[in-house]
């Protein structure tokens, strides 16, 4: 009994009370996850109407049934993605989260942490601190997120936002940029989910905060 009481006590103190992921981060994360999946699946259906490359996406993994339906989904989920994304960016800057969590990123740090990760020696003791690989990936995916929205807007409103289209070097290039960003996000998603499975407490932190 005594030992159990002690371990109970230890459990209390050993589990840090500090929140790893604040509630606003968890909320925008999961809203973004839903929005992103809707955007990607409907985007694949839209792609199928006029494929850029020699392949189409299987209808098992697309959303909307046909081009018209997919466009309705894409332009509905767009609101979720945009509003949620703007909240994330605003709070990320306002709370100093971006500065504290994502900076600095040094090439040396990324190289050594990548080596450590590949040899399974990377420490995950303190989930409140991102390692260099995480910093690079998370910062990178934010940039990709901004670019995919901007390229999407320029395809949606090429007359109204013709300056934005010019910035991408033309309407056709904007399409390729949009597709490339999607591919990068999907690649990120695969790695992100795989790593969350390898370090499940990070997933727990994104659900219950600690």
């Amino acid at each position: 009994m005594t030992s159990l009481a002690v371990s109970d006590h230890q459990a209390e103190t050993a589990t840090p009370a500090k929140v790893i992921q604040p509630v606003w981060v968890r909320m925008v994360h999961w809203v973004n996850a839903v929005a992103m999946i809707l955007m990607i699946m409907s985007g694949w259906q839209i792609y199928n109407a006029s494929p850029l490359f020699g392949f189409s996406f299987s209808s098992n993994i697309t959303l909307g049934g046909w081009l018209g339906g997919a466009l309705l989904w894409h332009f509905a989920a767009m609101w979720l993605l945009m509003v949620n994304g703007l909240i994330y960016l605003a709070l990320g800057f306002a709370t100093g989260r971006f500065r504290k969590k994502l900076l600095p990123i040094t090439p040396a740090g990324v190289i050594s942490d990548t080596k450590a990760a590949l040899t399974f020696k990377l420490s995950h003791d303190d989930l409140s601190k991102y390692n260099s690989v995480q910093k690079l990936l998370y910062t990178g995916i934010i940039v990709v997120g901004v670019v995919i929205v901007l390229s999407g807007l320029s395809m949606w409103k090429p007359v109204q936002l013709h300056w934005l289209v010019s910035l991408f070097g033309g309407y056709d290039i904007a399409r390729y940029v949009h597709f490339t960003c999607m591919a990068l996000i999907v690649a990120f998603l695969v790695i992100h989910v795989a790593l969350a499975l390898l370090v499940p407490k990070s997933l727990r932190a994104m659900i219950i905060g600690r």
Partner: peptide, 19 residues
């Protein structure tokens, strides 16, 4: 709980994976 206290990393994965 002892295991959890000693090494959360080792005990958590399996469980959380199951979840």
């Amino acid at each position: 709980k002892k295991l959890l206290v000693r090494d959360a990393v080792k005990t958590m994965p399996e469980l959380t994976r199951r979840r």
